[in-house]
Structures are given as C-alpha cells and as structure tokens.
Design a protein around this nucleic acid. Structure first.
Lengths: 210, 210
DNA sequence: CTCTTATTGACCATAGTGGTCTAAGGTGTT
DNA sequence: AACACCTTAGACCACTATGGTCAATAAGAG
C-alpha cells in the first residue's frame, strides 16, 4: 500500500524533474484555471494517465507544487541570508544576488511562486496557508531585523524609507526583466547589469544615508 | 453606404457606453486571446449578431478599443498636465492626481491600457503603432522636460534618481491597489491615502533633494 | 506463473470558441 | 399599403479544448 504522491517521489530524478518543470511552467504561465493538464503531460513527455496516477487531480498537483516550491525557497533562498549586515541597502544587494542565483537554478519555481504569491491565501488548505504565512514572516525578518536605523538621515521616517527603497529596487528588477525578455538567460553576460544595479544602489545610498 | 464602425458611433450614448465598457473590461481581464465575444455581448446586453454588425471581427474591435482608449488618454490625461512645474517630485504628485481622476472617470479604459501597454507594438497595424509611440513620447516629455536638476544633491546621477523615484512611486501605487482590492472605489474615502502618499513624497524630497 | 505496479492513449461528457445567417421587427419614403 | 433599408436577436456551425477515466497492456518481483 503506497500513498499516491509517494509513487511520484520514488520516480527517478530526471523524470520527476521533467514533470515538475512542465507543471510549474504551465501554472506559472496560465494561472490555475487556465493551466492545461494536457499541455503538462505533453511537455513532460508522459502519458495522460500517469499524471492522475501520481496526483489525485489537478488541485492536488497544484498544492504539491506550492508545497515543493516553498520548501525549495526555504532551502535555497532564505537559508543563505546573512542577517548580520546592518546596512539595509547592502542587505537588499545581498538579497538580489541570492535571488538571481535562485532564478538561475530554479527558473520555473521562481516564476511559479511569482504567480502563487499573488493569489495565495484564500482557498488554500490549512497546512499550505500556514506554511505560506510562515514564509512571509521569515522573509520579513530576514530583510528588516537588526537594521541600523542610524545610517539614515535625521528627521525622516525610516520605515517609509525602507519601503521606498524596496519599491525602487523592485522597479529596477522589473524593468530589467522586461529588457531581457526573450533572451536566453544562460547566454547573457550579467556583469554589466550588476554594475548598473550597483550604480543605482549608490544613488540610493547617497540620497537616503547621512 | 455607411462604414461599419460608423454605425456603432451613431448609437445612442448609453448603449455605446455599455458595449465599450463590457469589451474593455473583458480584454483587460483576460487579454486578447482569452477574451470572449460571448461574454462581451452578454455583459453589454446585446445580441451576438450585433457585435459583428458593428465590428468586422474580434481583432477590429480590439483595435477600435485601443484607438479609443488612446484618444481619451490624450484628452483626459495628458492635456491636463502642467509642464511648468520644475520640481520632479511635484510633477509626479500632480501626475498621480490626474491619474486618479482618470481612473475614477474611465476605470475600464484605465485597466485596458494597463494590459495594452504591456503587449503593444508587435502585431499592431501601422497607424496604431504610430499613435502608441507618439503617446509614449508625449508622456516622456510631460514628465521629464524642463525639470530643475539643481534641486538634487550634488554628486548623484540625476537620471538614475529620476528612475528610482518613479519606481518607488509606482511601487506605492501598486501596493495601494492591492490594499484596496475588492473595495468599491467610489465608496472609499481617499483623503487618508493621499495624506499617506504625501508623507512618502516628503521622505523622497528630504532624501533626494538638497 | 502470478501478483502487483507502471504505463499508455483512446475516449468521455461537457463547455466554450469566433463567426454566420435567417428571420423578424422597425422606420421612413413613396 | 407597399417597398426598401436598417437594426436586432440568438440558434446554429464546425471546431477546439477541458479534466478525468478506463481497459489494455508491459514490466518487475517472488
């Protein structure tokens, strides 16, 4: 007697990867409702029947992916944070590096989570909801805990400065994403983009810090 | 001999509005491919045949909406800009006010353009492509022309500062949009949100300006 | 040889697609 | 009243796609 997803987890690495990636991508690209199980099996190179042999139905598959993605995030994103950096902008710089590594290694997970975080919460089962909330809490701490407020100029609302800086950086990242659209990530020389990014960080430091 | 969309434009205001809004919303919510002409006629309260009586096909309808939306943008957004304000942040503040007015008055156009700007360019017919480029160019000028660079601190890259400030403000707007999600816009007291927004602008000024 | 597990893809009912066409109603002009 | 023309609705079309099932096998284990 073997549980339904256990069968899936006993699959050899390569095949499991193929299925996970096909499914993550399909959900990331189309959202839950519009994601097609037919497309998933096609891209994974398995028969239709197998998907429903490994997973009870579409919903369960989605939950499995959400769980899987969050586990990876903890392991390959949060675990690598250095919380001893007291400089907020430096911490964001570090965060960006880790994020980029994460994207390079798990692009489909990255994209999937991007859409997942937008919808999450409502109809998720309890355990996933809890995991999701724990994740956001950890993320919050990793970013904001033990930041040195005294680096900022006098007389400004530091909490608001945090937000503004973060929004600005997210703006840069989105802009970059748009500029790199269509190019094959692994063929890009990232150096000039990092340099450009650091220049932006420099402007932020010169402006927000004493 | 009457052109096909002229028939549409001779419709009484109320009915034309209903059709436009239903169509704009459908495309905004689902993107071109997934937008359903069946849904549009249903929400507009007209028979299926009429839509294809007014518009040759789905594509032409979409183009018509794009054109219509850009016309409104010029009339009710760009025309209201005051380009004599030399303070960049003040100009963005002004822009936000106009944008909010625009949204209150043409919510469906606003949403439609949001998605339109993301895809635009590729397969658009020449005339629309040109209009679109003209629009972005005007928008650029309205924001950046005749800004007083001397307000910014010494030794920083002002162009980069522009970007960062803009990204930060867009971040705030997105965040606000998420917080207000689900609420009926017309019932919201906007005052506290404007106050909050001004506080953010204050932080930006204190940080980026001398 | 048998029992269990793994695998496939044809198949199902259902729902939705953009677009057409017929038949009718309305309006105005002779 | 008769004709022409414009406007309207929605049944209908061929087509595509959906999530999920199932019977038929193949592979492996003992």
């Amino acid at each position: 007697m073997v549980s339904i997803t256990e069968t899936f987890e006993n699959l050899d690495y390569e095949k499991r990867k193929r299925i996970l990636n096909a499914a993550l991508k399909e959900f990331a690209d189309n959202g839950y409702d519009r994601a097609s199980t037919n497309q998933i099996v096609k891209n994974a190179g398995i028969g239709k029947g197998m998907l429903f042999y490994y997973f009870k139905n579409k919903r369960e598959l989605y939950y499995y992916l959400a769980n899987y993605s969050m586990d990876i995030t903890i392991k390959d994103y949060f675990a690598k944070f250095n919380e001893n950096e007291p400089d907020f902008i430096e911490r964001l710089k570090q965060s960006s590096k880790i994020k980029m590594h994460f994207f390079a290694e798990h692009p489909n997970v990255f994209q999937f989570l991007g859409t997942f975080f937008l919808i999450a919460d409502d109809q998720l089962p309890e355990d996933l909801k809890e995991k999701y909330h724990k994740l956001t809490e950890i993320g919050y701490k990793k970013l904001y805990q033990d930041i040195d407020y005294s680096l900022f100029r006098e007389g400004i609302d530091v909490e608001k400065a945090f937000q503004l800086i973060q929004w600005a950086i997210e703006g840069y990242q989105q802009d970059l994403k748009k500029r790199l659209q269509g190019k094959v990530f692994s063929t890009i020389d990232l150096k000039p983009y990092w340099d450009e990014f650091y220049e932006y960080l420099d402007v932020l430091k010169k402006s927000f810090y004493k």
